[in-house]
Design a protein around this nucleic acid. Sequence first.
DNA 1: CACTCCCGCCAATTA
DNA 2: TAATTGGCGGGAGTG
Length: 881
Amino acid sequence: ENIYDRSRMAPKTPIKNEPIDLSKQKGCTPERNPITPVKIIDRPQPDPWTPTTNLKILVSAASPDMRDREKKKELFRPIENNEQSDTPDSLQYDIVDDSTVDEFEKQRPSRKQKSLGLLCQKFLARYPNYPLSTEKTTISLDEVASILGVERRRIYDIVNVLESLHLVSRVAKNQYCWHGRHNLSQTLKTLQEAGELQYGELMTSQHKEQDLEYKFGERKKETIPDSQDRPLLDFSEPDCTSASANSRKDKSLRIMSQKFVMLFLVSKTKIVTLDIAAKILIEETQDTVDHSKFKTKVRRLYDIANVLTSLGLIKKVHVTEERGRKPAFKWIGPVEFPEKADELRGHSPASDPLPETQRGACAPYQTSATEKQRFTRHSSFSSAQPCEATRRKVSSEPSSPRQERQDENCSKMINLAAVCRQKMEEDTGSAKNSNISLPFSLLPVPGDSDFCVNPLPQAVLPVVQADVPSFSLPNGIGSQASHPPTPAASKTENGKPALVPNQPFLCFPSSSLFMLCGGLQENNLSEPLPTAGDLGNRSAEAQAAVAPSVCQKRSSHRCSSPSAPVDDEEPAAKKQTLEHSDLPLSLVVPKKPSESSKAESSPGSGCSDAVHIETNHLDLASPAAPEMANKESAKPLDCQEQEKQSQNKDPDEPSPGSEHISKENASQPFQPQYLYVQPTAGLSSFNFLFSANQAPGAISLAANQLPSLSVPCVMVPSAALASFPLVCSPSFTSPLSSVPDGSFSAAASTNFSVSSLASTTPVLISTTAVVTPKVSPTPSVDPQQPAHPALHLSPVLTRSCSAVKLDSPVCMGHPVTLLKLQQPSSAPLTPKSIRPAHHEAFFKTPGSLGDPVAWKKNEGNQTRSASSVQRRLEISSTSPD
DNA sequence: CACTCCCGCCAATTA
DNA sequence: TAATTGGCGGGAGTG
């Protein structure tokens, strides 16, 4: 169908009959596509020369898409196998060789395979996330289009969105300059600022919806006109803008994209529903809202969302409102830019903090005209006059020149927001005032399961229960994982892990996997504080690599990106996890229903609990952590943030941890042992590994109580771990240790809860009994950590529920360490056979677990929750069963 | 049926 | 005028 294909096909026609050889040759010979060759090479290696291999090669040669698929396969073998049938090649393939084609090809290139999100991933895969400052990568539209086998039009869709984020800039006709994510944080920051001006109040005052409305309404009236005057100024090009008139450009996908992103950044919940976004965006442009327009806007938003998803900045979720489920997207990218950005930057070679610099690299561009300029930072965001209203709120913020312009925009935005809100209300009816109040930000309502749900660890893994585990795990696991395997590396990585230890939660970088290991080790204890510091650094670095974009990693995997390597390493694990991918998502705590009771009561609050926890974790992870934590406590972070954080962390740890783990376990069981949940490509950043084998008991523990915590990531120790008692709260531990794997036991959970109440101690997952109860089995080390953890946690815990408990950090450390390493090896046995059981355990854990209900919900959600993107990604949710 | 969103027509812009 | 960009919305694929 694709031109691209055709071209090939035609020439090659002969191919049909000549299967392999030709194909290879062709593949090799890059007549048309020079690029192809490389990939081809890759392919072959992985697959030795099986008959199939040839076919594959041919296919790959035939279409880029195919290749991508192949890559994916590599990444996710398990899935792939299943999928094979899926492969799009089919058509081409068929044509070529019917006989050979067989299964795989038959299928037509499913629509998913052609999705913009997937295409975008491919596109992104071609360029480094953080290119050297010196090197400037130019992108030829034609070339890319041909390589990717799509029409140019599609490339424009991608490029326009990327351009809105300054990941690329247009240099000349058909030429774009790739900047990578170096400036992403800066750009986001700018957008956030702009967004705050425009919409900020809304967000801020969400609580006071009504007030806002009034305000907005007024403002709107006032400002609107202005805004209308200029269609979209927005950041995009206000200044130079002049240039090309506003006509088309103003409507540009670019602007829409920026606005869309702004909504996320401004939103407290970081969740924006499509309809709201569409309404807001429409408003800006026009007052009249007609249905068709709305539809069109939504279409565009999907386009943008697909690209943003590929970038790992957002993920799809569903928000349940009174009316029902609504499609929405959650921001999973970085939330705080300033610091990170800097750090990141430091990281990056280029000194220029500003995007401009990069642009500078591309120089022509600036000069040129206006078009390109649109994105220049200053222009983009700067705005002319501050809106009064906005100002007021924003006032606190340092006023910058930019804002001025923005104001206008802002005003528009605000107006829009107001309008939207009103509309919403009208539309909806009255109810939702609260909800309505913030158009953009949806509330994570207590009910809304999706985002909330997803997050919930509990749901996901009953046993594991994210909450506890996460905390505990982090401590133990994080540190351990990294350490054992590679000391040196561990250190750096440890930083993150270390962080974890200190704090209850661990966050794993989304991309990376996260594993639970049985043991933590010394590091945890020793480093607790340092870690935090380290973490900051580490995280910074890690983040630098990944963080900025946060989720990106995913993309990285396949991509050359720096961070990627690690991830790649762990294919097996990932694959497995992938299967379960859905589950991971559940991590989100927000609502966390665990405390189901409360969840509904206060959506925000509910989330907050979870959030808090996460936050704490996050704090550890991120440099700014401390502050963050506080903040969070003050105001619950959005689920997103949490996730995000988790993601950020993930990268660091995951890789190391996962690898290590894998290694350890590797001996056997890799697969069986861990389930890795991966957000699919970039979707969510979380990845989880669960040991399949894990002893139920261990898991169960966490699960029960954890719920409240709902840590983003949970690690479950592998079965081996199980053998060791994993963690749990100290009190818990003991029981656990005693308890066999199978027993999840409520008892354990019970214990947990109790203990939890008592102390703030972070939850640990340690392997065995080692962990003694609070009593402090652990040595002196503990003391250090405890404090922090306690602090962070305690609040959370208390709030969240009794359920959440923290073990004393100390305890964890020791126990964990000890436990984990040693035994695991022995333990690891659980073969696949075992898994099944485990799975059941996870999912089905009996009600005994803390929140059966919540849990159930989660499950449901999880399974279903996979976002379209994910689907696209091909991450199948297939479960091992 | 609703949600997604691919596809490509065709207009606006640019060269 | 030709080529490049990209708005736009029909309608198909999915669930």
